[in-house]
Amino acid sequence: MKKKIQELALVTLGALISAIGFNTMFIENNIASGGVGGLAISLNSLFGWDPASFVLIANIPLMVLCFFLLGKSIFLKTVYGAWIYPLFINLTAPLPNLTHNPLLAAIFGGIILGFGLGLVFLGNSSTGGTGILVQILNKYTPIPLGILMALIDGFVVGIGVLAFDFDTVMYSIIALICITYVINLMMAGSDSSRNLMIISQEHQAIKEYITKVADRGVTELPILGGYTGIEKRMLMTTVSRPEYTLIETEILKIDETAFMVVMPASQVKGRGFSLNKHHQFEDDILIPM
C-alpha cells in the first residue's frame, strides 16, 4: 500500500510539473516537442482546437491498448495519469508565458517536462498519449525507454512542419532532445547502484557487517600488494545507492584507514536487486544478496 501511495504521488507531482512547463514554455512559443501534447499544439495552431480537450480525447483509444497490452494494474494508474494531466493543463492555463525566446523555451521547457515525465515514469505510469506506446514497446522490445520516446515523439515533431516554419520545428527538436536526456538521466539514476572494492586489515569484521547487518552479499578475493608483495584480502560488494552512504560510514568506523574504490553500476541483476533474496538456497549459483 505504501508503494502504491508513493507511485500515485509521483504521478500526480510529475503531471503537475509537466502541465506547468507545457503552459508556461511551449504553447505560446509553438514548441511541439512530441507526444499528444505536441500534436495538440500543432492542431491548436491549425484548427484552434483546445489542447487539454484534445489530449483527453486522444487518450481514449490508447487506453484500450494499455488495458490489453500492459495489464490492469498499469491501466488503472495510467487512467489516473491520463486524466490528471489534461486537468492540470486546464488548471495551469492562466499561468503566464515565462519567455518569448523560443530557444530558452525549448531548453528550459524541455528540462521541466523531462523532469515531470521522469517522475511519472518512476511512478510506473504515464500521462497517456504516446507515453502509452512508449511503455508498450519498452515492455516488448529491448530498446531503452528514452530512445523509444525520441523515435515516437520525433515523428510527432515532424508533423509540426504542417503548422509551423522550419525554425519552430527545429526548436521543437531541441526541446525533445532535452526531454529525452532528462528522462534517460532520471531512469538510469533510479536503478543505479554502487560497486565497492574494499581493502582493509579488518576485512573479517567488515565482511561480518556487510553480510549480517547490511544484509548484502560479499565476495572475498585474494590479492597481492604490488609494492609490498604482501598477500591481502579484498572484499567486493554491490549495494543500492541509498544504502551506500550508511555502509561507507560503518566501514570507516571499523577501519578508518580502509582503502575503498567505489564505482557506479547503472544496472544490477540478480538476488537482492532484480530477484528476491532467498538465503535458504545455499547451493544457488547466484550468491544470495
Rank of each mutant, 00 (worst) to 15 (best):
residue 42 S to H: 08
residue 42 S to M: 06
residue 43 L to C: 05
residue 45 S to V: 02
residue 49 W to Y: 15
residue 49 W to G: 02
residue 50 D to S: 08
residue 52 A to N: 12
residue 56 L to E: 03
residue 57 I to A: 12
residue 58 A to L: 13
residue 59 N to S: 09
residue 59 N to D: 10
residue 60 I to K: 09
residue 61 P to K: 00
residue 61 P to T: 06
residue 62 L to C: 02
residue 63 M to L: 10
residue 64 V to G: 13
residue 64 V to T: 00
residue 64 V to I: 08
residue 64 V to C: 15
residue 65 L to Q: 14
residue 67 F to N: 13
residue 68 F to Y: 12
residue 69 L to H: 06
residue 71 G to Q: 11
residue 72 K to F: 12
residue 73 S to L: 11
residue 73 S to Q: 15
residue 74 I to D: 04
residue 74 I to T: 08
residue 75 F to V: 05
residue 76 L to E: 12
residue 77 K to P: 07
residue 78 T to R: 07
residue 80 Y to L: 06
residue 80 Y to A: 04
residue 80 Y to W: 10
residue 82 A to T: 02
residue 85 Y to I: 08
residue 85 Y to M: 11
residue 85 Y to C: 04
residue 86 P to D: 06
residue 87 L to D: 04
residue 89 I to W: 03
residue 90 N to A: 10
residue 93 A to P: 01
residue 94 P to T: 00
residue 96 P to K: 15
residue 98 L to C: 11
residue 98 L to G: 07
residue 99 T to D: 01
residue 99 T to V: 04
residue 99 T to A: 00
residue 103 L to R: 13
residue 104 L to D: 00
residue 106 A to W: 00
residue 108 F to L: 02
residue 108 F to Y: 10
residue 110 G to N: 10
residue 111 I to S: 01
residue 112 I to K: 05
residue 114 G to Y: 03
residue 115 F to R: 10
residue 115 F to N: 08
residue 117 L to H: 11
residue 117 L to C: 15
residue 118 G to P: 13
residue 118 G to Q: 12
residue 118 G to K: 05
residue 121 F to L: 04
residue 122 L to S: 02
residue 126 S to D: 04
residue 130 T to V: 14
residue 139 K to W: 06
residue 140 Y to P: 12
residue 142 P to E: 06
residue 142 P to R: 05
residue 145 L to A: 00
residue 147 I to A: 15
residue 148 L to G: 13
residue 148 L to D: 00
residue 150 A to Y: 06
residue 150 A to H: 13
residue 151 L to G: 14
residue 151 L to P: 12
residue 154 G to M: 09
residue 156 V to W: 04
residue 157 V to E: 03
residue 157 V to D: 10
residue 158 G to R: 02
residue 159 I to P: 10
residue 159 I to E: 10
residue 162 L to C: 12
residue 162 L to P: 13
residue 164 F to V: 01
